[in-house]
Simulated scan of single mutants.
Amino acid sequence: MECVFGLVGDGFALIAADTSAVHSILVHKSNEDKIMILDSHKLLGASGEAGDRVQFTEYIQKNVHLYQFRNGIPLTTAAAANFTRGELAIALRKSPYFVNILLAGYDKDIGPSLYYIDYIATLHKIEKGAFGYGSYFSLSMMDRHYHSGMSLEEAVDLADKCIMEIRSRLVVAPPNFVIKIVDKDGAREYAWRESISAA
């Protein structure tokens, strides 16, 4: 019952993801961070098979770092998205990764951006997007409440509305979520949204 969603606001991009590591009917852990900080100004939120998700996102992160190390400049968000899409396309014909990605970043001249990359190597630049079972509810909430130029407070409030909707609608809803943002000051964790446990 994975869920990753993101949106672009006024001068920032936000990604939120559930933190459950689940296999079949078992919950292995509830603090799995599914949003990787690629570099100082990029976030990569992923959903899909646990092994593919971890292996592929680490592979992308290391290659982004390698490019910066070799060339002395970081990849732009668009370049990182196209590299990621290319690697998925190559793998699709050999040994495919079942991983869906939202890649958010901030570039000095362009500003914030968000890219949708699915497991069959489809790439789109978007304003809002989601993957997983929770996407049915988060996308409808964003269709209703999202507008361009949202402030950080409005965007976090919308993310909280999406999380509440997922928790109330999904039969087996993930209890905890992590929210990360990227803006001119860099990529960082913003908050955890933990459910109230019955003691």
Rank of each mutant, 00 (worst) to 15 (best):
V4L: 03
N176G: 11
I60K: 04
D52L: 04
L170P: 03
V171Q: 00
N71K: 08
N82T: 02
I181D: 00
H28C: 07
S30N: 13
P174G: 12
A187M: 02
Q68F: 01
A104K: 04
T84L: 00
I15S: 03
N100W: 13
M150E: 04
N63P: 01
H28I: 13
K161V: 04
L7F: 10
E49Q: 10
L26F: 14
K184G: 05
C162A: 13
C3G: 04
Y190K: 07
I101N: 11
F177T: 11
I15G: 03
F177D: 06
L75F: 03
L44I: 09
D18C: 06
I90Q: 07
E58K: 14
N100A: 11
I110R: 10
D109N: 15
V8T: 12
L139G: 09
G51S: 15
S195I: 12
V178L: 09
M142C: 10
G72Y: 10
K108S: 13
R85Q: 06
V99A: 13
S40H: 14
K94V: 12
S113P: 02
K34V: 10
V156S: 03
A78H: 01
L123Q: 06
D39V: 07
A79I: 00
S95M: 02
A104P: 05
S197C: 13
R167L: 05
G11M: 11
I90N: 03
K161T: 10
L114N: 02
A198V: 14
P96S: 08
A81Y: 00
G45Y: 08
F12L: 05
S95Q: 06
D39C: 12
R53S: 13
T77N: 05
M142E: 04
S20G: 11
S148F: 12
K184Y: 11
E49M: 05
A173N: 04
A91M: 01
